[in-house]
Nucleic acid binder design. Structure first.
Lengths: 197, 197
DNA sequence: TGTACATCAGTGAACGCGCGTTCACTGATGTAC
DNA sequence: TGTACATCAGTGAACGCGCGTTCACTGATGTAC
């Protein structure tokens, strides 16, 4: 079985690097030739592991999300819901998350690009988003998905905006504003039930 | 002066179409050859009007923003601040805005892609964002920029997310959740002064 | 244990394609006399 | 007003480049006897 193990290891290396690149450079900036070369391989061998570039993009998105979620699984479950939401926002909208794009949330990294992706990619994107909403909702005691959706949209929008802007002071201000807004929103959700208009 | 007028008209046509394409397909999907062909011209003539593709991207971003802002300049100034903010959010997070990408806000269309753009593009992006924040803040009676930043991040994040997701029901739910969250946030800003944490 | 054969991960040259950009040109418009 | 020349917006062939993908191959690993 040594051959199969070696193959799996190579595939994991390609996928791992692709998952980083996808977040750093987006869908467009992740070329097969560069990816394979930077794995110490030649580009032809790529198709032993993946049927197409599109398939890699989907697999890389999923791998990136799994890695990102494994990274911050430790929010104490005994805190009140609003407090957990604030902690999540504080972490997501941190300078660290902004600056470490390659290890960050791929949904934010592809926030505007996802709409131009293949159908398979967009379905994976939606599935991962729905998963994140469900996870957060369950952790928050079966909280309405609409609340989690808005909190996630605010967090992702703030993070993407902080990365788009070249001025460091403005970027920091965006993160701080959105952290504050997340906290206010978390509090507001505790005060009144949500009827949408 | 007939020649100069003709030239200006051609340039405006190229720029106008580029401003649409930029929002529909992003930075990557806006090719010189296709753009010129769809203007009824050949690609060589492009460089009579713009020094480079990069320069076009910047000009198209600015043109798109100007067009977008001209489109929704009519929010009554005599309404209370929170009400104006809610109206703005309702419009920005509408199904219409989501579906008419080509006429929509270019900052949302490039939300995640802007970070990979040229320095000139990122500076233009920041300038336009700052302008939108200032305009909204002035209209709201010199409101703190941090409040406007968070409201804009929520609106842009929600819009981009609603476009990313292929399922129409989920997309609608995202818009509705973010409209509701914007309203709650606008109310929350009226109740307490903002100190950032 | 040693030999012959099969498998298959990875190689590297080649493919067609679309990209941004250059450049010698054409021919209608504008100017000078 | 008519003729000769200059300008310059737009043409279209050509450039080098990187992309995703294919394919005949190599040579180490795995299997059969």
């Amino acid at each position: 079985m040594k051959r199969a193990e070696q193959k799996a290891a190579t595939r994991a290396m390609i996928l791992g690097l692709a998952a980083q690149r996808l977040r750093e450079e987006g869908l467009a900036g992740n070329a097969v030739h560069r990816l394979m070369r930077d794995c110490g391989l030649t580009h032809g061998g790529f198709y032993v592991h993946f049927p197409s570039k599109e398939a890699l993009d989907v697999a890389a998105l999923e791998a990136a999300m799994a890695e990102h979620e494994a990274r911050d699984a430790v929010i104490p479950a005994d805190l009140p819901r609003a407090e957990r939401r604030k902690q999540r926002a504080r972490r997501y909208l941190s300078r660290q998350h902004r600056d470490q794009t390659a290890q960050g949330c791929p949904l934010a990294a592809l926030l505007s690009e996802a709409a131009h992706g293949s159908e398979a990619l967009r379905e994976a994107y939606q599935r991962l988003l729905a998963g994140a909403v469900t996870d957060a909702g369950d952790a928050d005691g079966a909280a309405p998905p609409s609340e989690e959706l808005a909190l996630i949209a605010l967090a992702m929008g703030g993070l993407a905006l902080a990365r788009a802007v070249p001025d460091a002071a403005l970027s920091d201000a965006i993160l701080a504003s959105c952290r504050d807004a997340s906290a206010r929103l978390a509090d507001a959700y505790e005060q009144t039930a949500g009827d949408l208009t």
